[in-house]
Amino acid sequence: MSGALLYALTGGVLFAMGLAGMILQKHLLRRILAFNILGSGSFLALIGLGQRGGPPDPVPQAMVLTGIVVAVCATALALALARRLLSLTGTMSLPGDEDVTD
């Protein structure tokens, strides 16, 4: 097994962990963290698979660079929305879940 494939497999595991976190966690901060783990997993898988056959492929590298910046912005927007939700309703969970106040 090559090192590149190991990165890709780790990415797959991180993706599944992030997905499980997004389903199971009710606290919005934890969900945002899980979303980031999920995204990092897909980036790692793309980079790993992009260099299986020898030299690194610049196309997935550029895609991941784009993706990282978008993920940072999406995270910041999600945090701002969660903060607003906390100030308006006093809870850090979505309607329908149990209230999380801290």
Binding site: L9, F15, M17, I23, L49
Partner: peptide, 24 residues
């Protein structure tokens, strides 16, 4: 389901044929 997805992804990565189009 998440564990199953991880296994499925790993299996797909092991089984992935080399890319037809050589982008580099």
């Amino acid at each position: 389901l998440s564990l199953g997805l991880a296994l499925l992804l790993g299996w797909a990565m092991f089984d992935l044929p080399p890319a037809e189009i050589r982008l580099p």
